[in-house]
Simulated assay, not measured.
Amino acid sequence: MASSKKEVVRVAAVQAAPFAFDLAKSLEKLRTLTAEAAIAGADLVVFPEAFLSAYPWRYNFDATVGARRKWFAKYYDSAVAIPSPEFTGLSQTAKQNRVFLHVGIVEKEGGTLYCTSVLFDREGSLLYKHRKLVPTAAERLVWGRGAGDGLAVSNTELGNVGGLICWENYMPAARMALYEKGVEIYLAPTADDLTTWVATMQHIAKEGRCFVVSANSVYKVADFPPDYPPFTLDHHDRSPDGSPWGPDDILNHGGSCIVSPLGEFVAEPVWDKEAIVYADLHMPAITEARMDFDPVGSYSRPDVFTLIVNTKSGTGVQFA
């Protein structure tokens, strides 16, 4: 049997939008949704990538030579420092609701922002912090890169819990590192709403012989401040049909889902609406699935393939 002390684990993938650039309101929404999931019996509640406090849809933060980036400062101000009162609030939310809580945050340290995932246990203790190893495409303009010390899998009463953020999941070596650590409940917060992403979730579940929980947001234009540059009338950006943006136009369609160790849905993708996606994970299914394929056991070839993972911190300055 899998390492879980629970034979059935109830998970909740929260598909919702924050109040973009408003950390206080976003935290309040997170508390409300977490409580709702806890009342429904969830052991583990998973929020999307960059839920606190927004994935910055459609904006390049005026990234041209010599530009001054006012909105980057606003984005920074709505990010989460570790430690901070806001971060303590996340811990308290996990403890008050007696759930394992996984949240995608925009983390600020020094003058840099990071796309980060944090996992708390039922007592509100931080189990791990993982920074996205490689921000994707234009994300590199606003987010720094993580390090190998965040490639973590936590052994919990629910099983071994870990994961990667969005397109990190297309990094085979990063996935293999988690498989080697024995991940059983694989968390994949994302901002990718393409149908090919859903196929990726099925592939990872079947490849890793683990349950995969993918949480994505549903964003509308109205979820951003009215003066947010991409959606103002004087901005060059337009909706996909070429017309000006309307408040109900959808920027990200969701697709949150939960997948079994054989790549089958235990909760089908949900599109174009806010929802909490629930599933009961029958943990013995992991052991059953690994009888004929185990990526780090019977189906590995360490005599042929070698992976070395540098787990040192990305901090470049140390004080003796």
Rank of each mutant, 00 (worst) to 15 (best):
Gly150Pro: 01
Ala174Val: 10
Tyr170Lys: 14
Gly150Cys: 01
Ala137Cys: 05
Gly144Tyr: 03
Gly150Met: 00
Thr156Pro: 04
Ala138Trp: 15
Ala138Asp: 15
Glu157Met: 15
Leu164Ala: 01
Leu151Ser: 02
Ala147Arg: 00
Arg175Cys: 11
Pro135Thr: 09
Ala174Asn: 09
Arg131Asp: 11
Gly144Val: 03
Asp149Phe: 05
Gly146Lys: 00
Ala152Lys: 13
Lys132Gln: 13
Thr156Met: 04
Glu139Gln: 11
Asn160Leu: 13
Gly163Val: 02
Thr156Leu: 06
Leu158Ile: 01
Leu164Met: 07
Tyr179Phe: 13
Ala173Met: 09
Glu139Met: 06
Glu157His: 10
Gly163Pro: 03
Glu157Cys: 14
Glu157Leu: 15
Trp143Asn: 08
Ala177Trp: 03
Glu180Gly: 09
Cys166Ala: 07
Gly182Gln: 13
Ala152Glu: 12
Lys132Cys: 08
Ser154Asn: 08
Lys181Ser: 08
Gly150Leu: 01
Trp143Pro: 03
Arg175Gln: 14
Val183Ala: 04
Gly159Asn: 05
Arg175Tyr: 04
Thr156Arg: 07
Met171His: 10
Gly182Ala: 13
Gly163Glu: 02
Tyr170Arg: 11
Leu178Ser: 10
Val142Ile: 14
Glu139Arg: 01
Trp143His: 10
Ala177Glu: 06
Leu158Trp: 02
Val183Ser: 01
Val183Tyr: 00
Val183Gly: 02
Leu178Gln: 15
Gly182Asn: 11
Val161Asp: 06
Asn155His: 15
Ile165Val: 10
Arg131Tyr: 09
Tyr179Cys: 10
Leu178Asn: 08
Trp167Pro: 00
Thr136Glu: 15
Pro172Asn: 04
Leu141Val: 12
Lys181Glu: 12
Val134Phe: 08
Gly144Ser: 06
Glu139Tyr: 02
Ile165Met: 10
Trp143Lys: 08
Met171Ala: 11
Leu178Phe: 13
Arg145Gln: 15
Arg131Val: 09
Tyr179Met: 13
Trp143Leu: 15
Val134Pro: 01
Gly162Ala: 07
Ala174Trp: 05
Glu180His: 14
Asp149Ile: 06
Gly162Leu: 07
Val183Ile: 07
Asn155Ala: 14
Ala174Thr: 05
Cys166Pro: 07
Gly150Asp: 01
Gly144Ile: 02
Met176Ile: 04
Ala177Tyr: 01
Ala137Val: 12
Tyr170Glu: 14
Ala174Asp: 07
Gly159His: 03
Val161Cys: 06
Ile165Phe: 05
Gly144Trp: 01
Ala174Ile: 05
Asn160Glu: 12
Met176Thr: 06
Leu164Asp: 02
Trp143Cys: 11
Gly148Gln: 03
Pro172Ser: 06
Asn160Gly: 08
Ala138Gln: 14
Gly150Gln: 00
Val142Ala: 08
Ala138Val: 13
Ala152Tyr: 05
Pro135His: 08
Ser154His: 08
Arg140Val: 10
Asn160Val: 09
Gly148Trp: 00
Ser154Val: 04
Arg140Leu: 12
Glu139Leu: 03
Glu168Phe: 04
